[in-house]
C-alpha cells in the first residue's frame, strides 16, 4: 500500500529533524554552527529566542560619548538601579 506524502507530513519533517539533533546531543554543537543556527531559527518560529522576521526590532539604547565622559560607568550605574528596582518590585531577581 503506497502512502502519498501530504502537506501534514511535510510539516512533521522539521520536528523529526530537530528530534534527531536532540537525540544525538548535537544541540550545543548546532548553536555554534551558522547553518544549524539558521535551521534552528526556521524550525522554531515561535521560540522567543528566535524572533520571527515580523517582530519589530529593539528596544535598544545607544550611547555615543565624548572622551572622558565616563559613559560606561553611568550606564553600569543605571543598570544597577534598574536591577534594584526590579528586585524591589518582584521580591526576587
Amino acid at each position: 500500500m503506497s502512502h502519498e506524502i501530504t502537506v501534514n507530513d511535510m510539516k512533521i519533517i522539521p520536528t523529526v529533524f530537530h528530534l534527531f539533533l536532540k537525540q544525538y546531543k548535537l544541540k550545543n554543537l548546532a548553536m555554534n554552527n551558522t547553518l544549524m543556527a539558521y535551521l534552528d531559527k526556521r524550525l522554531h518560529p515561535k521560540d522567543s529566542r528566535y524572533p520571527s522576521d515580523n517582530t519589530q526590532p529593539g528596544p535598544v539604547i545607544c550611547i555615543s560619548r565624548e572622551v572622558g565622559c565616563g559613559a560606561v560607568n553611568i550606564t553600569n550605574c543605571w543598570l544597577l538601579n534598574l536591577i534594584n528596582n526590579l528586585r524591589s518590585k518582584n521580591g526576587k531577581y
Partner: peptide, 19 residues
C-alpha cells in the same frame, strides 16, 4: 541591550524602538 559607542547610534538609526 545598551550599546555604548561602536557607531551604534548610526547603525540603529532606523529602529523605531530605540533611544
Amino acid at each position: 541591550c545598551i550599546i555604548v559607542g561602536r557607531a551604534g547610534h548610526i547603525i540603529t538609526r532606523g529602529i523605531k524602538e530605540s533611544l
